[in-house]
């Protein structure tokens, strides 16, 4: 059971949280302008790395707020958590850079 630090409430058990998958996805401003393939990419294509991953969690049984985390999907080590309105920490930036490069 992971121990995850909610940016507002502090460290809590994983059972208090909901999971939201990849973070920093941007909803297209004008979906009508996208072709089906581009729209499908937004809907369904997600980064799925083995290793550090920038992802979303929600403190469902706590403050009910969403936040972002950097976690190693191989070891389950939670490297950092941060609020959505915060500048991503270095650990997140590195991963995000790599993810974009991989596309």
């Amino acid at each position: 059971m992971l121990r995850i630090s909610c940016p507002w409430c502090g460290p809590r058990d994983e059972t208090e949280f909901g999971y939201g998958g990849q973070a920093h996805l941007k909803r297209p401003d004008n979906p009508e302008a996208l072709d089906d393939a581009a729209w499908a990419e937004f809907l369904f294509l997600r980064d799925n790395p083995e290793g550090p991953f920038v992802e979303r969690w929600v403190h469902s049984h706590g403050c009910r707020r969403w936040f972002n985390a950097v976690r190693d999907t191989k070891t389950d080590r939670v490297i950092a958590t941060y609020r959505p309105d915060e500048t991503p920490p270095e650990a997140a930036k590195m991963v995000l850079k790599g993810q974009e490069g991989g596309r």
Partner: peptide, 13 residues
Amino acid sequence: MDWLEELHQTEWP
């Protein structure tokens, strides 16, 4: 409820 909160907080804060 979860869905609306998610949309509000993460898409349109």
